[in-house]
Amino acid sequence: MTASLDVIGVGNAIVDVLAKADDAFLAAHSIPKGGMILIDEAQASTIYDAMAAGVEISGGSAANSIACIASMGGKGGFVGKVADDALGEIFRHDLHAIGVEFDTKPLGDGPATGRCLVNVTPDAQRSMTTFLGAAGLVSPDDIDEGQIARAEITFFEGYLFEQPVARQAFIRACAIAKREGKRAALTLSDASCVDRQFDVLQQFIPQHIDILLANDREAETLFGSDDLDVIAEKARKLCPLTAVTLSEKGSILIPRDGDVVKVDAVKPAQLVDTTGAGDAYAAGLLLGLARGFELESAGALGSLAASEVISHFGARPEQSLKALAEQAGLL
């Protein structure tokens, strides 16, 4: 019997290209500040050619979370689609190098491996333009029944939810997890995604999801209010557990039964780049829940992971999150 997994992520397999930019650059290329828009291959080439020198690293929201889980000493897996090309091989190598299970068959024919162009302004806001390429083509055939059955939590990325064939993969994975008595989690990813998929999410979440993750803007869009009491009331009706991150104000965890749990943020050594903050928070929270932690402790682990990731350029940890968590008495 192959070893169990704490969390398996299902998401976009993307290579991130990160560079510094100013507001004028964003305006010149019609990039919405702090958001994410999808672009085609030609647009990706134009923006990439104009970007400042930067760094390339394997990314994708759910994959970033799984990388953080590995850094915390957890056992993670990932399901995502890359092409049989150089960027796809880089992505696969990066996950295998940190001990993550990633065995999804590459795409033989079709678009290239996806990439996300992340322009980071001096206020640490990240503005993303994404060419999905092969990443959006995750299908039900890519879901390994035995692998999902071994995971305590299966974690889905909201960005990928927008792709109809991938949504069918989510539904298949959720059915397997439910049959095995395991949990399914979904991160909403972006307020614009929530707006576009509003009606479908209102049906999908109560049918399939046990743990919902959102930032304040995504929660406001899904629940139609910026009042946290209203959000909590509506969240309880939609999902057994909802986590809402509130930037420097920390986060709140809303169980269906019980009081709202407030979790403090952990102040970073320096604020450099908010790319991946939500991904890191999700990693800590989900690892804690997979290990049976109380809500307060799981949320604190999420805050700690987010603090490390926003203290440097890029969405994956540079320090051992396990070591930091052990120093903080969380692991």
Results as ranks from 00 to 15, higher is better:
250 G>K: 10
226 D>V: 06
300 A>S: 15
264 D>L: 03
267 K>W: 08
236 R>N: 11
318 E>A: 06
252 I>T: 10
226 D>M: 11
288 G>V: 10
264 D>A: 07
274 T>K: 05
257 D>T: 05
224 G>C: 13
317 P>Y: 01
319 Q>C: 05
230 V>T: 04
316 R>Y: 07
302 G>Q: 05
316 R>K: 08
238 L>E: 06
262 K>C: 13
274 T>C: 13
293 F>M: 07
315 A>K: 03
277 A>H: 08
295 L>D: 04
229 D>L: 11
250 G>M: 09
255 P>G: 08
283 A>F: 04
253 L>A: 07
273 D>I: 01
222 L>V: 02
230 V>C: 15
323 A>Q: 13
296 E>R: 14
244 V>K: 08
291 R>N: 13
227 D>A: 14
247 S>K: 11
285 L>F: 15
273 D>V: 02
284 G>T: 01
263 V>Y: 05
264 D>G: 12
252 I>C: 10
278 G>F: 04
247 S>R: 09
225 S>E: 10
255 P>W: 00
244 V>Q: 10
304 L>F: 11
275 T>H: 14
247 S>L: 03
316 R>M: 10
318 E>K: 10
224 G>Y: 03
306 A>H: 02
276 G>A: 03
295 L>N: 04
301 L>R: 07
314 G>D: 11
223 F>D: 02
303 S>F: 06
239 C>P: 12
304 L>Q: 05
257 D>G: 12
270 Q>H: 10
256 R>G: 15
252 I>Y: 02
317 P>V: 00
294 E>P: 15
232 A>D: 14
289 L>K: 01
225 S>Y: 06
229 D>A: 13
308 E>M: 08
289 L>C: 11
305 A>C: 14
243 A>S: 14
304 L>T: 01
309 V>N: 01
319 Q>P: 11
282 A>G: 12
237 K>P: 04
262 K>E: 12
224 G>N: 14
265 A>N: 13
292 G>L: 06
266 V>Y: 11
225 S>L: 08
275 T>L: 15
269 A>K: 08
275 T>I: 03
